[in-house]
Design a protein around this nucleic acid. Sequence first.
RNA 1: CGCGGGGUGGAGCAGUAGGUAGCUCGUCGGGCUCAUAACCCGGAGGCCACAGGUUCGAGUCCUGUCCCCGCAACCA
Length: 648
Amino acid sequence: MAEKKPFYITTPIYYPSAKLHIGHAYCTTLADTIARFKRLAGYDVFFLTGSDEHGQKIQQTAEEAGVTPIQYVDKIVASFQHLWKQLGISNDDFIRTTQERHQRAVQEIFRRIYEKGDIYKGSYKGLYCTPCESYWTEHQLDENGCCPDCHRPVQEVSEEAYFFKISKYADRLLDFIEKNPDFLQPVSRRNEMINFIKQGLEDLCISRTSFDWGIPVPMDEKHVVYVWFDALSNYLTPIGFLDDKEKFEKYWPAGLHLVGKEIVRFHTIIWPCILMALELPLPQKVYGHGWLIVEGDKMSKSKGNVVDPLALIDEFGADAIRYFLLREINLGQDGNFSRDALIARINSDLANDLGNLLHRTLNMIGKFQQGVLLAPQGESEFDASLKADAMETVSFFEKGMENMELSESIKKVWAFISRANKYIDETAPWVLAKDPEKKQVLANTMYNLAESLRIISILISPYMPTTAERIWKQLNQEGEFSEVQLSEAYAWGSIPDGHAVGEPEQLFPRIEVEKETPAAKPVKAKKQKESKENKKEDKKEESCEISMEDFSKIHLRVVKVLAAEAVPKTEKLLKLTVDLGDEQREIVSGIAKHYAPEELVGKNVVMVVNLKPAKIRGIVSHGMVLAASADEDLQVLSVDMPVGSQVR
RNA sequence: CGCGGGGUGGAGCAGUAGGUAGCUCGUCGGGCUCAUAACCCGGAGGCCACAGGUUCGAGUCCUGUCCCCGCAACCA
């Protein structure tokens, strides 16, 4: 066989300021699946992920935690790596921007561009938001003159800094993007970037003196290299940019940088400019995927809908999560993640369709033929059709995967799984088994089902590596599963005559859902209904009605606010200490925009007493203060009744 | 005139250089019994947010309006 074609694929490097959430897991799973597919298809793949560990924010957070920055990031990065392991991520390397190899590479890149004259010293004046590590111009600020992102105050800063002449490359870049439609996808992002570039590019400030947790600028040690210049360079480091010319030439340019839509700009403007300055070829493709919306809403701890991927993996297994993310969410746009939808997919697709197909097949082979497959002889119309479908599925799948149509490709496999289930119905093996003369027809049927499952296991392996291998093992296939190639999926009839299969074993047990979880679901349904009906004049109010019994579950009481203080580093949260009459509680309330803490002290307000406690910003909030709101306005319900009064 | 995404049967989504509106789940009815109350077949359910326009013909193109959602993942 000819030498394998190289394929270099990357995820963004994640910022270790907090734990990773399902959105990060999504992105990395996408990349992993593509990487696994490429390996399956015979490419020599290098798959990189990592962490972006520098910056003022990390430095500060570490200080607050009383540890050094490196101690701080070491710990968090270990949790990244743990998560990737649990998720079955098959990265070939893990780059950390604090590694010596990366620092050397960045300094070298900086030096080369500087010597070329594309980096110059200037001074930067601007309004800086520390938490966001962003400079803003005056008109970008929000109505209060604060950071438009986080709405915290900004500081005026002026510092000496190095600049990278991006402006010099704008025309070349635009030309490149316009001439290479594949470079930037999906098209909506591409159009966006073309517009952005046409508005003109400004030189980019790439150094800082205001903090020192970063890579020193080689010729001027009081500067550190600023975030994007540092972070983007990670893509060059692990493939031998500095010290392994052969490896570097093999893998560069990258085949795919997979990124979230929020950072497409950096990857399609700054990064290509850096590469052009280095006189290196540009990556073949940058793909900006969408985000995950959770339960129709933004994730937030306060709503109790933060999705911790590790917890999900514990509960459902990595493959189920992977399957859900890749199947349910369309790559280019935002997608919904919900627990109900996840369970529905697991039950119907994984347990009923796939798991049960394997189980019933192996069971029949065991029951009707003592677990032994016989080479088929003759072919019925059903057999021929099944086989044709299998072959069509494989080639559709291959094409789809090459085009990054992940969701479409896996759906096609499921259509085939469905086809195989139908085949069982068509051939009715339990009938054949009763007729000795149909012995060979039965054997053909069993053989074809086993072949179908063998092929299915190959096709799903990039998506669900563990499950694929379990199927493989249950079919008692020979050889290392990791060595299997896509070409074997095309080879119908590979199972030898007389092959004995293994015992059936449940792949995915069905997940039984309790009839009605009183809390979350109805509330959500109601919310959606409301918003829908608001436009169409709520004619069907009765559908939102609750019974007296429902209402009586909510305990409302008048309580007195004893103390109130702002929760540090938040803009909407107040921590309140309230007196219920017979006890005191702490609750966190998102009303800081409307009330100063001192305004609330002494007030008697209405509160939900029996709300399940929730942890918000580390504070246990047990209860909720009721407030009326309309547009921007908000008022807590304050009443002139004694503490402890029931509200009904 | 900040930017972007979106409004399609109960839910979640597809709809590809404009030509009978599809899929999954749910639901209703039937079939089957090898199987994880599973599998197979069939039915009901949509004037594709609204209003104009282009066209022989628009969910799909153009214009305008309304509504939702984000601004990068702490905000009960």
